[in-house]
Design a protein around this nucleic acid. Structure first.
Lengths: 206, 206
DNA sequence: AGCAAAATTAAACAAACGTTTGATTTAAAC
DNA sequence: GTTTAAATCAAACGTTTGTTTAATTTTGCT
């Protein structure tokens, strides 16, 4: 898949608009106008609106496993690496939140015909990597064995997204004045909360 | 707000279709056909498609606080009531997952003009109720004081939704053959996982 | 410079969209 | 039984939708 600058520009514009207004809520004319290209260019470059989304997913889902392995293979204690792991996941999730929003919405709909293989593959790989790390920690006697490893990621990523999807509510509750304040809150308070949560779960035997 | 049987029927059909295909992905003609009414009835009863959604939200957001209080005011230990609380939240969230999916998608988009006051109000009330319970537990020396109470709900509900939004992935990972198996998994394994997570966080001082 | 391929454009296409209209049927009230 | 309001309907409204067409411009190569 070779993408020229103009194509990448269209994909980035589409990401923003799809996340804001959804796939069906975004017209190719809006994309074209925002990207400052002719409407016909979208069919010309991507074939169709649907294929544009599939191209975007392939383009955007970068390899997560190497980032995870880099953190896991550090010479630190299990709990320190666990903290780093969660920090990485939250940062990455926050960075790619628009892509995830599109996927969450379209992927949970089983009647949609999109191709989500790239996403599923990446998800499976990162699960295996995390599973292997936790099991080593369990064998080393650091982590509690009585835990559902397949539900760790939902708790980590889900905590982030339930905050993000209710951002307008939490902005009044906390309060967070602007998007910069939200970023800081995510990278500090929210990250710390999830680190604390997962560490408790993995190290405290009930 | 008085709704007759036909109106409620249209709202229930709309809920299913909006959750499946989104607000913009669902046409009034599809709603009308699925609900077996004439297209014009939607404008006649609700005024417009947008007002139909707002009517739906008002109709669907039932009072959550009383359910919470019933659990909290039981004569049980703090940890037992915490377990019951989480069980209630997961059951209720699972029951209303379609409504939440619509809200998550539309609410996180700040440019949408929908009226979410009813949702925000309900969310604030349940937060206050949970906060009060946790603080009493802290004063009683049962719960750890070093915890972000405003992030408990994101972790509880978020764990559920990140599982739900990636259902197609987890169906192959776990594996869950059909939707009944998913229901059982949510009510048993997932609920237990979240209970365990929150109990660790609240009772284990790191 | 001259040619072929690629890129870009305005215009047109049929289909689908939310909504309104005006006529007709049903239901309720007296 | 007549009257009045509510409910229901098929049809039509003007827009907007994704995509295609055919003409034109730009680019890259020899």
């Amino acid at each position: 898949m070779k993408l020229n600058e103009k194509q990448i520009h269209i994909l980035n514009v589409s990401e923003k608009l799809f996340a804001e207004n959804g796939f069906d809520g975004t017209s190719v004319r809006t994309i074209a106008k925002e990207a400052d290209v002719n409407v016909a260019m979208i069919s010309y470059y991507f074939g169709s609106k649907e294929k544009l989304l599939e191209t975007f997913l392939l383009y955007r889902i970068a390899d997560f496993r190497n980032e995870l392995l880099k953190v896991i293979n550090q010479e630190k204690s299990y709990t320190e690496r666990l903290d780093d792991l969660i920090k990485l996941i939250i940062h990455r999730t926050h960075d790619k939140r628009r892509m995830y929003k599109i996927i969450h919405f379209e992927f949970s709909n089983e009647t949609r015909g999109f191709d989500f293989k790239a996403y599923t593959k990446e998800k499976l790989e990162s699960f295996k990597t995390i599973k292997s790390f936790v099991e080593k920690g369990q064998d080393a006697g650091v982590f509690n064995k009585n835990v559902n490893i397949e539900l760790l990621m939902p708790t980590v990523q889900g905590s982030y997204f339930n905050f993000y999807y209710n951002k307008r509510f939490y902005k009044t509750l906390i309060p967070l004045e602007n998007d910069v304040a939200v970023d800081i809150y995510v990278h500090q308070t929210l990250t710390k909360h999830i680190q604390q949560t997962i560490k408790s779960l993995l190290t405290y035997e009930i």
